[in-house]
Amino acid sequence: MSTEPTSGGGPDTATPGHRVSPADRLTAPEVAEVLTLARAAGDADGADPLDEHVLLRMRDPGAPAVHLTARAADGTLTGYAHLDTTDPAKGVGVELVVHPAHRRRGTGRALARGVLAAAEPGPLGAWAHGDHPSAAALAVDLGFTRARVLWQLRRPLTAAPPAPALPEGVELRAFRPGEDDEAWLAVNNAAFAQHPEQGRWTLDDLRVRIAEPWFDPAGFLLAVDSATGRLLGFHWTKVHERPGSARIGEVYVLGVDPSVHRGGLGRALTAAGLAHLRDARGLDRVMLYVDESNTGAVALYERLGFARWSAHVNYQRD
Results as ranks from 00 to 15, higher is better:
R207G: 02
A101Q: 12
P167C: 08
E212N: 06
V224L: 11
D205H: 12
P213N: 10
L50M: 08
G75A: 09
A191M: 08
E182F: 09
N189L: 07
L232N: 02
A136Q: 09
R285S: 12
D225L: 13
A183H: 12
V98I: 11
V34F: 03
A81F: 08
P164T: 04
A147E: 15
R155S: 00
H312I: 04
A126I: 14
S7T: 15
E120V: 04
A135C: 08
L277R: 08
G106H: 07
R176K: 11
S245K: 14
R303D: 05
A159M: 05
H102S: 10
R19Q: 14
G169L: 12
P121K: 06
A160L: 14
G114N: 08
G108D: 10
P61I: 10
L56W: 13
S259Y: 08
H53R: 12
L157C: 04
E171V: 15
D216I: 09
A299R: 12
G75L: 13
H235E: 01
A271D: 09
V239R: 12
T202F: 11
Y315I: 04
A183I: 06
L37K: 00
L26A: 02
P22K: 01
P121L: 10
H18K: 01
A14F: 03
V92G: 01
D141G: 07
L304G: 01
L231Q: 11
G93D: 10
F306G: 00
F215L: 07
A47V: 14
A137C: 04
G93I: 04
A190T: 03
G282E: 14
T3K: 01
L150K: 02
S245P: 05
T107M: 05
V97S: 01
D48R: 03
N188M: 04
I210L: 12
D216N: 13
G169Q: 08
L50F: 09
G114K: 00
T107P: 07
A112H: 11
D291W: 14
A193C: 03
L283V: 04
R200P: 01
A81G: 07
G91R: 02
V286I: 13
R71I: 11
L56Y: 14
L222R: 01
A311K: 05
A160E: 15
L26E: 00
R173C: 05
T86S: 12
H82T: 01
L203R: 13
H261N: 05
V260H: 08
V298L: 00
G10D: 10
S21H: 07
F144G: 00
D74G: 03
N189C: 05
L277T: 04
A28R: 15
K90G: 13
L172V: 05
P164G: 03
A193G: 02
L37V: 04
P100R: 05
A163R: 15
D279T: 12
L96E: 05
E292K: 00
V208H: 03
V94S: 00
E30R: 04
S7P: 05
R200A: 07
A165D: 15
V253E: 01
A272F: 09
F192K: 02
H99P: 02
D48W: 14
D284Q: 09
A47K: 02
H67G: 02
A272S: 04
